[in-house]
């Protein structure tokens, strides 16, 4: 198949605020992992928010095609059910809602959309056990309320676990490495690597090159001042690490 995600001239601003994305062009094919890097304030998180349909942003121009559909025309929950997954930089706590219950509700919402039968409790548990094994994580997180009282590392692992359960076509990882110590980073990265799939595209947004040592991307893009100003293969990241973003500012 051709491009899973096609972004053309995407412009967006914070509602009633300044323009943050000033014409993004990006193609991502199924099976690829893309890294989007850049300095603070470049628009990285805005891009992930706009793709996921978070309220509070206004698209002022451009198009986004996802599996041939107009992504921007869909409400956030529909995008999710159509297979767009966002791993949050700051996963949100939902007190009193059991993690498993939440995940089953989410999973079955997607299955209903695709015309598949909902999973009953037993089928769901079986799927959970398989993913836990795949990601080599314990079941201690499952009995707790969604993200409540989780450490930073636990929250990020929970995001990846959700991704494993929901099996998205497009996974956007928003600063998934932020706040992780080296062991947690390794564990989360191993999980993501196991979820690489010929049918799945992964877009990683990160400030730091070190994540790319663990999840090796097919393509690396530099986002600066709302535009992609440079792109390259995986060796490009190492180059950036040496030279920094500063020269790109001059080039842009």
């Amino acid at each position: 198949m051709s491009k899973l995600l096609e972004i053309r001239g995407l412009r967006a601003r914070i509602a009633n605020g300044r323009e943050v994305l000033k014409g993004i062009d990006l193609d991502v094919a199924a099976g690829e992992v893309h890294a989007i890097m850049g300095p603070n304030g470049a628009g990285k998180s805005t891009l992930s928010s706009v793709l996921a349909g978070k309220p509070g942003y206004e698209v002022t121009g451009g198009t986004v095609r996802y599996l041939g559909q107009d992504l921007l025309a869909m409400p956030a929950d529909e995008r999710a059910r159509e297979g767009v997954f966002l791993a949050f930089q700051y996963p949100v706590e939902i007190p009193g809602v059991n993690n498993m219950y939440f995940l089953r509700a989410a999973l079955n919402a997607g299955r209903r959309q695709r015309g598949q039968a909902e999973l009953d409790a037993q089928q769901f548990l079986k799927a959970v056990r398989e993913r836990l094994k795949l990601l080599d994580i314990g079941d201690d997180l499952l009995r707790r309320a969604v993200n409540v009282g989780f450490s930073g590392g636990e929250k990020k692992r929970n995001e990846i676990f959700q991704m494993a359960m929901l099996e998205p076509n497009l996974a956007i990882l928003d600063e998934t490495d932020s706040g992780l110590d080296i062991d947690a980073l390794r564990a989360v990265s191993d999980g993501v690597n196991r979820l690489r799939d010929p049918a799945r595209a992964i877009v990683m947004i990160t400030h730091y090159q070190r994540l790319l040592d663990y999840i090796v991307p097919d393509r690396v893009h530099v986002l600066a001042d709302g535009r992609i100003v440079a792109s390259g293969d995986k060796t490009f990241a190492a180059e950036l690490e040496r030279t920094g973003y500063a020269y790109l500012g001059d080039a842009a």
Binding site: A52, G53, K54, P55, G56, P75, A76, D77, A80, R81, F85, L86, F88, P91, V92, E93, I94, P95, G96, V97, F102, L103, A105, A106, L107, A109, G110, Q113, A145, Q162, L166
Partner: peptide, 28 residues
């Protein structure tokens, strides 16, 4: 919070289901 609502919706729940889930959690 809008963040809670968006988190649930990003996982595929409708706004109504998200609200119901959050409220039920609150009342647990």
């Amino acid at each position: 919070s809008e963040d809670q609502m968006f988190y649930c919706q990003q996982r595929g729940l409708t706004a109504e289901d998200a609200l119901s889930l959050i409220v039920n959690g609150f009342c647990k």
